[in-house]
């Protein structure tokens, strides 16, 4: 029971690539969903830490066993290390919003949004992993959290394009069921993989990593016509060399358009006919990968065979999921939180 103790509500978007937190004390933070353990004694001594989270883990990846626990939207089954990594990310996010182990620390009620695929397959696994990190815990699918935060619970469609998965969720005025949701594994990661491959095809000697490619995509990614050539610098045989990756970027970013458009065209006609038009005109694009320039328009154009529609991007793809989680946390009744303790 919460009693008279102060309460801190938090909404957490536990993503494949990035995780974000919004708390009722006004704090908001986002981190890379990476956890790293120093690989040996030397690394531990250099890093002076037993564990590194987020950007710090990525920055020191040469010295750590780097993990991103939610690959393709799923926690890797049977890996204790990945379960620990999920816990560490959650603990880190809580620390960032001011949660401490202090006895006077407020009661923490957390709503954690996870990729829809993990919700379907790993819900129990994740619940066990996260149990004990907060006082009360509710797990919801990420697209649902977004829809809740935006008050788009009736006759809308959320497309959450993350790193590991693209989740589709038709909101029909009820908690989404299996038939309301679809998941594709084409998302940010698949773009990165293809982009890396295409750049290496053009520049076989270029020394590039998926981390570099990811940064380039986030900065220059586009669908449709290029506003300007995409030129980056990477070492070739150790020497910084300018690379023109415009075509590779276009091809890689556009690789997700067709599968997403296909799924849209498959999903929309299955909705009750009287609501189809309304849903078609209330399509919400969320998730980090949805920020790729031109993607929203390309998806909107893909609705033409069904008579057209409107695809809107959320205002803040980084925090909309966490904000939705926070809205759920704030709206849940004390008695409900007590049940979830």
């Amino acid at each position: 029971m919460s009693g008279s103790k102060e309460v801190l509500n938090v909404g957490i978007d536990l993503g494949t690539s990035r995780s974000a937190v919004s708390a009722s004390n006004g704090q908001q933070h986002v981190i890379e969903s990476y956890v790293g353990w120093p690989v040996d004694m030397v690394a531990r001594k250099v890093l002076k830490k037993d564990i590194l989270i987020g950007d710090e883990a990525v920055a020191n990846r040469a010295m750590v066993d780097l993990r991103r626990p939610l690959e393709r939207g799923l926690i890797k089954e049977g890996s204790e290390k990945d379960i620990t990594a999920v816990k560490e990310i959650l603990n880190h996010l809580l620390k960032l919003v001011g949660v401490s182990k202090d006895k006077k620390a407020p009661t923490v009620r957390a709503v954690v949004g996870i990729p829809a695929e993990a919700m379907r397959v790993n819900k129990q696994h994740l619940r066990n992993a996260l149990q004990g990190t907060v006082d009360s815990l509710m797990i919801v699918s990420e697209p649902f959290a977004v829809a809740y935060g935006l008050d788009a619970l009736l006759n809308s469609l959320v497309i959450d394009i993350g790193a590991g998965t693209t989740d589709f969720c038709v909101m029909r005025g009820r908690l989404p069921t299996e038939e309301d949701q679809r998941t594709l594994t084409v998302a940010g990661d698949s773009i990165d993989e293809l982009l890396l491959k295409l750049i290496l095809q053009k520049y076989p000697d270029a020394q590039i990593t998926v981390y570099m490619v990811r940064q380039w995509k986030e900065k220059h990614g586009f669908v449709g016509s290029a506003q300007q050539p995409v030129k980056v610098t990477a070492p070739i045989k150790g020497r910084p060399t300018p690379l023109d990756i415009t075509d590779a970027m276009k091809t890689a970013c556009e690789s997700i358009v067709e599968p997403i458009a296909e799924t849209l065209l498959d999903l929309l006609p299955r909705i009750e006919p009287e609501f189809q038009e309304q849903v078609r005109n209330s399509i919400i694009l969320s998730g980090g990968t949805s920020q790729i320039a031109g993607l929203r328009k390309a998806l909107q154009d893909s609705l033409e065979p069904l008579g057209g529609g409107a695809v809107k991007s959320v205002k803040n793809p980084v925090f909309d999921g966490a904000d939705g989680g926070l809205a759920i946390a704030l709206d849940a009744l004390d008695s409900e939180w007590d049940q979830l303790t």
Partner: peptide
């Protein structure tokens, strides 16, 4: 909203 939120709570309780 209340109805859907209750469903979300129930789903978690089920887990």
């Amino acid at each position: 909203k209340r109805q859907i939120l209750r469903q979300a709570v129930d789903e978690n309780l089920s887990t």
